[in-house]
Nucleic acid binder design. Structure first.
Length: 878
RNA sequence: GGGAGCAUAGCUCAGUUGGUUUAGAGCAUCUGCCUUACAAGCAGAGGGUCAUAGGUUCGACUCCUAUUGCUCCCACCA
């Protein structure tokens, strides 16, 4: 045999992936079989593979490969997301490196640059997925900004607009001054930030002149005082009653503003006086609306102060804050400062401090959509796994606000709203259609007079159509099951595997879109993976530099090892603490499989020999254990307990198949193996490979191909998953007894001492006389075993190794044993009383399901028997 | 501030409507072994008052109450 003792993934992985591609194994199209489809959560087109993707896509691949092997028509749609903000900011940064400002380019020039970037970097992440072994149907690769999908987005916008749920309005939005765009509420992350609370003196005005009297107002944002529109007090605050009707001067610029009263102000925070700055604070804006205050916007899109501020014009907001504090201090307006920790909103994409800003944006009304989407989850039509996310989901759906869908960017689907010169808006899928509509009202209008809205749509406004649009390039935005076979067959998809942080951004909205356009849920199960963290519990991120490069890992350990490493430690919804030792474990497992194969392949066959007793016993046992494990694995999968399923097969292969089965059947050194045992062993190995395949596709293909002669194009990927056969519980129980014995004998041989506990076990199990004896002899490497007939204390265990006879005297502390047994008897008596009480309860017997009652009956009889046995044992000890 | 969840071995987690296990697994640790498939291995071993305090029960890791600590979500008091 010249198979190396170490498995080398670099010799197999690329080879088999190319083989699968060549034979179009991933390809899917509708047929008579039951469909099983997954759409990939499209990664950012400019992204690179990180550990989160690895996790996520490994699970998807496991599910899709398993589905393929259980006879389903498996379809995994890959693709990428155009990711407006993320991509645009990358392109802007790259231009800047070349000394080009975005503002110096036209929209067309910029988009050209962006597409160039996309062509260069767009495919990287998908290529990386192949390294992982992802069995996506690459022919179906989609991009959220490709023509058909963009068209779907535009049509969807027009659809909702005509329906009256899209509107345009001036609202306070979350402004990202770095990305220079509005972001949705969900894209704002609040972080506890150290800041200062500045106590400022505002002097009372009389006919526009400052008097000596002043009030003190606390603020964290002194740079916005120039935008103040009023000072607000609580109407019930007696301290400030004297202020009513008075006017106040804004420090430094001495503009006069009124005192107003509003319940919003809490009396015991700060000084009880609140400066109202409608343009720069969401709450102030609402107070402003109630009191009809003017809105003075002093901050530009880039976060710098403008002329309306009168002072510090052109300065960036944080710089302005520093400077104005100095000025206030010099002017005698600063009373004191206090350290203060407050939550400050940051942009998810650029990490810039969010500026609340008034602007004209497009919104989608969410109320009705959210209600239905909540229903889908509450009715169980969409199951969240783990289901504790249902609570958070509900909460979000009940408090959802209208969705700001416009973004002040260029990379994305431009909003199909067209304006006439006097500002009237026509919404239609194309400029021509909008023009046609506009002509009815403005017969003299020329098409050149129409200008399209500058903004693009939020990326999520395209990804919420993903599970529909990927199957429907024909009638984008107006899906039609009747005419579209693909959509009719693969939609709705089965499972969605994604991270919980986009449950609302994406998952909820996909449910809404699918309900609206398909009248159906887009998937039945949403498996939420955890966030991959490092050993210290930090989220893996590029900026922290704590994320290993998955491709380097794959190169070092092999894709199968990385997959196993991830799967073993990932239970749904729990964060994953990544540690390289997990991948090492995966690699070691690969090697174990490899060496088991080496052993089996190395056997020489004796055509005439019959299986030994030990081998027969082992085969009987393993056949049952295999069936049992197949059932267990199926059960784990049905509950999305992927890591349990992984562990089940891991232990089955390593702890049972290698450690016990192979040891039991393996011929002595230099001996041949009988044909029957050989073939059955081969069959077991083949079954195990198939069970392992979804988890570790490459090594299983390699070994399966080498297990017997295969034709070109054959692959383990398309083999039927082994089905559970009959389970012989007695064979399993017998083997367990033998195993217990072997362990005991090994212990005796190692220590020449036996503990009372072990002696009792040996005695009670009485295995040596049973049919398991040959097995025990084989596995314990013992040639003769004698039953120990007397209770320990007087005798010992007798066995032979080779020709040497061993006798191990056993001493048992009978008094201690008695105490133990008595305690156990007491426990059983209590237990039995409880069970009997339950069974005598009429209500329990009549209302509980039959299976539960039967279980109780079984418990009763089992316990009765056990009690009897224990009592007998106690008698013998006396 | 409101809501949800978690707390089990050094680490990561199981524990299936309270019982048949003296609370399990994997990894890590320790002790022996280079035994002809595998040292990326084999054979063993140690390690937990199941966060704390009460309660219900014949019996609680499991149910109830309170406390402590952590996580997440929502809201944001200037």
């Amino acid at each position: 045999m010249d198979i190396p003792a170490k498995y080398d993934p670099s010799l197999t992985e690329d080879k088999w992936y190319a083989y699968w591609l060549e034979h179009k194994i991933f390809h899917s199209e509708p047929d008579e079989r039951e469909p099983y489809s997954i759409v990939i959560p499209p990664p950012n087109v400019t992204g690179v593979l990180h550990m989160g993707h690895m996790m996520n896509n490994t699970i998807q691949d496991v599910l899709i490969r398993r589905a393929r092997m259980t006879g389903k028509n498996a379809c995994w749609v890959p693709g990428t997301d155009h990711a407006s903000i993320a991509t645009e900011s990358k392109v802007v940064a790259r231009l800047k490196e070349r000394g080009i400002e975005k503002s110096s380019l036209t929209r067309e020039q910029f988009l050209e640059e962006a597409w160039k970037w996309k062509e260069e970097h767009g495919g990287i992440i998908l290529k990386q997925l192949r390294k992982l072994g992802a069995s996506c149907d690459w022919d179906r690769t989609r991009f959220t900004m490709e023509p058909a999908l963009s068209k779907a987005v535009i049509n969807t916008f027009v659809y909702f607009y005509k329906k009256g749920v899209i509107y345009r309005g001036v609202r306070m939005v979350n402004w990202d001054p770095v990305g220079k765009t509005a972001v949705s509420d969900e894209e704002v992350i609040h972080k506890e930030t150290k800041s200062k609370l500045y106590y400022l003196r505002y002097f009372i005005s009389e006919e526009g002149k400052a008097t000596g009297k002043y009030i003190v107002i606390a603020t964290t944002r002194p740079e916005t005082i120039m935008a103040d529109a009023a000072v607000c007090i609580n109407p019930n605050d007696e301290r400030y009653h004297w202020l009513k009707g008075k006017k106040i001067l804004i420090p430094l610029i001495n503009r006069e503003i009124p005192i107003i009263e509003d319940d919003y102000v809490t009396m015991d925070f700060g000084t009880g006086c609140l400066k109202v700055t409608p343009a720069h604070d969401i709450n102030d804006y609402e107070i402003g609306l109630r009191h009809k205050l003017p809105v003075i916007d002093i901050i530009n899109d880039d976060g710098c102060l403008n002329e309306k501020a009168q002072i510090l014009v052109g300065q960036e907001r944080f710089e302005a804050r520093k400077n104005i504090v100095k000025m206030l201090e010099e002017a005698g307006n600063l009373e004191k400062t206090e350290d203060y920790i407050s939550p400050v909103g940051h942009s998810e994409r650029t990490d810039a401090v969010i500026e609340p800003k008034l602007s004209l944006q497009w919104f989608l009304k969410m109320e009705d959509l959210a209600k239905k989407a909540l229903g889908s989850v509450e009715d169980g039509k969409v199951k969240l796994i783990p289901d504790r996310f249902t609570n958070t989901y509900r909460h979000w759906m009940e408090t959802v606000r209208d969705w700001c869908i416009s973004r002040q960017l260029w990379w994305g689907q431009q909003i199909p709203a067209y304006y006439t010169p006097d500002g009237e808006c026509f919404v239609a899928s194309t400029k021509e259609e909008a023009y046609k509509e506009a002509l009815e009202k403005y017969p003299d209008l020329k098409i050149e007079d129409l200008t399209q809205d500058e903004d693009v749509l939020d990326t999520w406004f395209s990804s919420w159509l993903w599970p529909i649009s990927v199957f429907d390039p024909e009638k984008p935005g107006f899906p039609d099951r009747e005419s579209n076979k693909e959509l009719a067959y693969y939609f709705p998809t089965n499972d969605l595997i994604t991270a919980p942080d986009i449950l609302f951004f994406w998952v909820a909205r996909m449910i809404m879109a699918a309900d609206e356009f398909m009248g159906q849920e887009p998937f039945s199960n949403v498996y939420l993976t955890g966030i991959v963290r490092d050993k210290l519990g930090r989220k893996m991120s590029k900026t922290l530099g704590n994320s290993p490069d998955p491709l380097v890992l794959i190169k070092q350990y092999g894709a199968d090892a990385v997959r196993i490493g991830m799967l073993l430690c990932s239970s749904a919804g729990n964060d994953i603490f990544y540690d390289e030792s997990q991948v090492e474990q995966g690699r070691n497992f690969c090697n174990k499989i490899w060496n088991a194969f080496r052993l089996i392949k190395g056997w020489e066959i004796d055509e005439n020999a019959k299986p030994s007793d030990a081998a027969s016993k082992a085969m009987e046992w393993f056949a049952s254990l295999l069936s049992k494990s197949i059932e267990t694995i199926a059960d784990h999968f049905s509950k999305f307990r992927i890591s349990d399923a992984t562990m089940t097969i891991y232990k089955l292969f390593w702890d049972e198949f290698c450690a016990w089965y192979l040891e039991a059947v393996k011929p002595a050194f230099g001996q041949k193996i009988d044909k029957c045992t050989y073939e059955i062993s081969l069959y077991f190995f083949d079954s195990l490979l198939k069970l392992l395949h979804p988890f570790m596709p490459f090594i299983t293909e390699e070994l399966w191909q080498n297990l017997s002669e295969r034709k070109d194009g054959e692959t383990i990927m398309l083999q039927p998953m082994p089905k559970a056969g009959e389970i012989n519980e007695k064979a399993i129980a017998d083997f367990e007894i033998a195993r217990g014995c072997v362990v005991n004998i090994r212990n005796i041989r190692q220590s020449k001492q036996i503990s009372p506990k072990q002696a009792v076990e040996l005695y009670v199990k009485k295995p040596f006389a049973s049919s398991a004896a040959p097995l025990v002899a084989k596995l314990a490497n013992v040639s003769k075993i004698e039953e120990c007939t007397e209770f320990p204390g007087t005798t010992g265990v007798n066995f032979m190794v080779g020709t040497t006879e061993f006798f191990v005297p056993v001493q048992v502390d009978t008094a201690a044993e008695r105490v133990k047994i008595e305690a156990e008897i007491k426990r059983y008596e209590g237990f039995l009383a409880g069970v009997r009480k339950k069974l005598s309860n009429e209500r329990f017997v009549s209302s509980a399901p039959q299976a539960v009652v039967d279980l109780e009956r079984k418990k009763e009889s089992d316990a009765t028997e056990k009690l009897k046995a224990l009592n007998e044992l106690l008698q013998r000890l006396k």
